[in-house]
Write a protein that binds this DNA or RNA. Structure first.
Lengths: 104, 104
DNA sequence: ATTTTACTTAACCATTCGGTTTTGTATTTT
DNA sequence: AAAATACAAAACCGAATGGTTAAGTAAAAT
C-alpha cells in the first residue's frame, strides 16, 4: 500500500470528484456507487481506494458489503490552500483598482 | 495544444503548486523560476505551460525572456468546490454534536 | 560578426494512471 | 448444500505524466 496519498492528486480526477459529490450527502455501498458510473466495478473499487487512502472516504466492511462514507474534513487542506491564494489575488486586484482610481 | 486544461489536474502536482506560491507575490522570468527547482529548465518550461494552459499563469514574451505572472482567479473554481463540501461537512458534524447534546 | 543567453522543440524513457477482463473469496440467499 | 451476490486481487493494456538530454532559434551582449 502506498504510504499516504495526496488529496490534491486524489481530487484531480473528475470521476473521483463526482464520487465525493455522490457520497457527500449519503453513505452508499460500493455496488450502488458503481451503478452511477459507466465503468466496471473494479475500476470504481480502485477509485474508492484512492479516496480512502487520502482520508476522503472511509470504507466500512459490513458482511460482504463495503459501505463508503465521505470524510470531507480532508478537503480543508485544499480549501485553505486555494482560498489563501484567491484572497491574495483579490487583494492585489483591489489595490490595483485603487491605484487606477487615484490617478483620476 | 491541448484544448483546455483542467485546473484541478494542474494543481495536482506539488512542483506546480510551489510555482504558484513563488509567482503569487512576484512576476519572474522562466529562468529565475527554474533556479528555484532542482530540475532541468525544459522541465520547468513544461510545468509552466500547463499552468498557462489552464489560466493560472500568463506568460508574457519580452525579448528573449518569458515573464511569468500568476493569474490566481482561476483558483476560484477549486476554492468554491472544496469550500462547498467542507462547509457541508462541518454542518453535518455540528448537527451530529447537537444530536448528542440533546441526548443528555 | 561572434558568442552568449533564454528559451523552445523534439526525441526518448520509466513510471503512473485509468481502464479492462479474468479469477478468487467471503457472505448471503435459496 | 448449491447458487448468487458483493466485492478484492491479479494480470494486462494503452495513454498520459514527469522527467531527461540534445539540438534549434531568436534576442542581447561583446
Amino acid at each position: 500500500m502506498k504510504a499516504r496519498r495526496d488529496v490534491f492528486q486524489a481530487i484531480a480526477d473528475p470521476t473521483r470528484r463526482a464520487m465525493i459529490g455522490l457520497l457527500a450527502s449519503q453513505t452508499l455501498t460500493l455496488n450502488t456507487v458503481a451503478e452511477n458510473f459507466q465503468m466496471s466495478q473494479p475500476a470504481v473499487s480502485k477509485h474508492m481506494r484512492i479516496l480512502a487512502e487520502c482520508g476522503l472516504v472511509e470504507i466500512v466492511k459490513l458482511g460482504r458489503e463495503r459501505h463508503c462514507q465521505a470524510r470531507l474534513g480532508a478537503l480543508e487542506e485544499v480549501a485553505r490552500w486555494a482560498e489563501q491564494y484567491r484572497l491574495f489575488w483579490n487583494n492585489r486586484l483591489d489595490t490595483l483598482q485603487n491605484l487606477l482610481k487615484d490617478e483620476d
